[in-house]
Simulated scan of single mutants.
Amino acid sequence: MLSPDKLARIGELSRKSKAEGLSIEEAKEQTKLRKEYLETFRSTMRKTIENVKVVDPDGNDVTPEKVQQAKRNNRLN
């Protein structure tokens, strides 16, 4: 998870970008922080999806094969 300080800084840079524009250094910082945020988000989302089990109304496991394969791959790593 991204630290609250980094999330706050992303917001600050976004507001400043809309209000007055960013310097070259600030734009680079913003790009770096956004990239880090997206990597963290994608990793967390991937882990969440891989831990989902889909069950139909009859109680049968109908989890998509792609998700089941990802679970198996993660257990091996």
Rank of each mutant, 00 (worst) to 15 (best):
residue 52 V to M: 14
residue 22 L to W: 05
residue 54 V to M: 10
residue 66 K to F: 12
residue 15 R to K: 14
residue 39 E to W: 02
residue 3 S to Q: 10
residue 44 T to A: 12
residue 11 G to L: 06
residue 7 L to G: 02
residue 65 E to D: 15
residue 2 L to A: 07
residue 40 T to N: 12
residue 70 A to K: 12
residue 30 Q to W: 06
residue 55 V to G: 04
residue 71 K to D: 03
residue 75 R to Y: 08
residue 64 P to D: 02
residue 58 D to P: 00
residue 56 D to L: 05
residue 67 V to R: 04
residue 53 K to G: 02
residue 63 T to P: 04
residue 15 R to W: 01
residue 25 E to Y: 00
residue 31 T to A: 15
residue 18 K to R: 13
residue 4 P to M: 07
residue 76 L to R: 14
residue 32 K to G: 01
residue 13 L to M: 05
residue 19 A to L: 12
residue 55 V to K: 03
residue 48 T to K: 14
residue 8 A to T: 11
residue 73 N to Y: 03
residue 27 A to H: 03
residue 50 E to M: 11
residue 22 L to S: 06
residue 16 K to W: 00
residue 24 I to Q: 13
residue 50 E to D: 13
residue 21 G to L: 06
residue 5 D to I: 07
residue 57 P to D: 01
residue 34 R to F: 10
residue 59 G to D: 03
residue 74 N to R: 15
residue 67 V to W: 09
residue 19 A to I: 09
residue 54 V to A: 12
residue 10 I to Y: 01
residue 36 E to K: 05
residue 61 D to L: 06
residue 3 S to I: 03
residue 11 G to P: 04
residue 26 E to N: 05
residue 51 N to R: 10
residue 56 D to P: 11
residue 36 E to H: 00
residue 74 N to G: 09
residue 3 S to F: 02
residue 7 L to C: 02
residue 67 V to I: 15
residue 56 D to W: 05
residue 2 L to H: 02
residue 27 A to W: 00
residue 22 L to D: 06
residue 39 E to N: 09
residue 70 A to S: 15
residue 12 E to T: 09
residue 37 Y to R: 06
residue 70 A to Q: 15
residue 43 S to Q: 11
